[in-house]
Design a protein around this nucleic acid. Structure first.
Lengths: 214, 214, 214, 214
DNA sequence: AATGAATGAGCATTCATTCAT
DNA sequence: AATGAATGAATGCTCATTCAT
């Protein structure tokens, strides 16, 4: 048992070592720009070895994104857990949390967001696809619960909470990609933070029930 | 003179013929999946001919997107022009207009949105890049004016109108890509329309000044 | 007749205009590097027009070289004509004359020399090939006559004068190409002139009959 | 250890196998005429495999030429080593040795000589360029030493021995290319051997100090 | 005479992936 | 478990040349 355990532990370490290398390379060169060979080099392994841990390039990419997805999921859950915050405050906190994820590793986040709607999705193995789906759904579900809570308190307007979560998530993803794109044109400043805050502020105000006007 | 005119007309037609073919192929296979040869085949021309009209694959792709960008710009301006609508109503109308663009050609729209944040942007000729930039900026500016009008009427909260336009645009782009992505997982129904409407409804409510509460 | 003459004159001018452009471009980029389009551009004509004056790229190149060959031929004949010079002095003068040709247009001369042994020779039209052959033969023949004169005077050893001409010509061509090649390695100085002089000095001494030794 | 050795041996064999194929194809079709695919086919390998052994087409060509350069170098050194020969006799022997190299593989020799002054030189890796340069320089140096020896013995006139070596080498290269070129015109006989012998005979006589005349 | 337009044919190079060892 | 070696399959792009007008 000890041996099997050690084996497994070593295996996981190798896997992580590859993911770390992949992260560097994908971030620096994008999906098509990154070659298996360059990743292998970065990981100080042979290309063939990568295939012992990942079925193909797409899955390696996807696995990498999974990690980011998990970070996202945890951050979101972290916000939801904060009992001292009202649903409204949680929306504000969510913006902050998501921005922290961006700051933590902008390039990988962008990769994740681009990946979500890319052709590469179709080449994944069913298991991995399922895993991503489950994780995403769970993250979305957590956001939805914030809205649900607000509705239960009669603080928020009655709307489909999942749709609201989609909106919040899309707003975040859209802003990240759009700001990134704008920097493709110009190399101007990055306005993501204030815009994101404003966006979520609008969102917060938009879902809030209002006194007697409407 | 007649000859020169005819020449020019024919030239434009060829160009369009290529763009039509490219649209089909890019939509079906994505940017990397589409080969120059397949596009040429679709256009019933030789690959070399494509290079008489477009500098390279990236520029062909970009030109295609330009067309969509123009459609977007016009639709947005169409909404802005409607004098009978209040700023608030224009926001609702904007959601509708944008959805029509989506419906008109979902795949190209998705391409445009993906393109905005892709690596391909860097390979474009400065002119084309400038053109795209200008067009995007103008479209955004028009959206911003809707918000400005609302602020001037004291209907809307005072915020940076360009930032609000970025938010509206990102919400739209984010939702389109996210719904597309979800369909990569499941092949379920497409909830874009209602979600988009709800998103803009929230946005509308969010920017609206409120009676006396905050 | 006046009209036909003018036509012909104009035709020759166009031809020359193209040759001038070709010279520039071939010199700058070498044979494979130069494209018909770039030459046409330099000549301010369309690529198609070039084909009205030259059968193909090879023939254009060859015609260009022909011009240089003519210059060479004339220079060589100029040396031969100088009645005041002894055969020995003519050999020295030949080195000088050939070096002047090199100085006049090094790149085209190098092209000519490279062309002499290149694959391109095989694509030429029989007429042009014949023309080149005739011209070369004539130039060689003139050099040979210098040696013949020296032999007749019993100044030079009795050897096949054509072979001696081949040797003189090869020495010149070999040195030009070899010095050019050395400059491909290093960008050092160009030793062509003194080496060429020395080479022909050796040649002169080598063909000279000697007192009583042998 | 045995394994690593075998690996290395096999690797060298593969390399040689490719060089052999390249030699055939380059000789038959010249540099531009030869395609990587045709060479790969001749070597019974895939094109991609060639790139595991040679960085690109230019380097493959250059490596091939390197082999010939080595043969040349050895032949030349072989002549220099012959203690029983006087410097004068070595010049005669050099002509013979160089002709043997020609006979051994005329086409590759022609390639080498053409390569020396070609544009391809510029695309080589610095190492390879250096290697070629070193080898050439060494061969030239050896020729120069023959002349030096003759000068030391007061048999030869005092001239820069390196310049004399350049002259001998250029004479050889020039003659080979010129005779090759002449065969491009006519398919007549090949006069290289006697002309080369005569050329070096003249050279020998030309560098020899003479009794009391000048 | 001149050319705008079109193209056929080509080609070096890349890279994800496999497999014997 | 790890990898050196091999490759199949692609693909964007170039360019000499032709021809209708």
């Amino acid at each position: 048992m000890g041996i099997a355990e050690r084996r497994e532990r070593e295996r996981q370490m190798r896997r992580q070592q590859i993911l770390d290398a992949a992260k560097k390379v994908f971030s620096a060169k994008g999906f098509s720009g990154a070659t298996i060979e360059s990743i292998a080099e970065e990981a100080e392994l042979s290309p063939a070895t990568l295939y012992l841990y990942f079925k193909n390039k797409d899955e390696l990419y996807a696995s990498l994104n999974m990690k980011m997805l998990e970070v996202l999921k945890q951050k979101i859950e972290g916000v939801y857990q904060k009992k001292e915050l009202s649903p409204e405050q949680k929306i504000t906190a969510l913006a902050e949390a998501l921005y922290q994820v961006y700051e933590f590793d902008p390039l990988i986040l962008i990769n994740v967001l681009q990946f979500q709607s890319s052709e590469a999705l179709r080449n994944l193995s069913p298991q991995l696809l399922e895993e991503i789906k489950t994780d995403s759904a769970r993250a979305l579900r957590t956001i939805a619960k914030i809205f649900e809570d607000g509705m239960r308190d009669e603080q928020f307007v009655q709307e489909n909470p999942i749709a609201l979560a989609d909106i919040a998530w899309s707003l975040f993803g859209g802003l990240v990609l759009w700001e990134e794109g704008k920097r493709g044109f110009d190399l101007k400043k990055n306005y993501l933070k204030p815009t994101l805050q404003l966006g979520f502020e609008i969102l917060r105000r938009g879902v809030k029930r209002q006194g007697n006007s409407g």
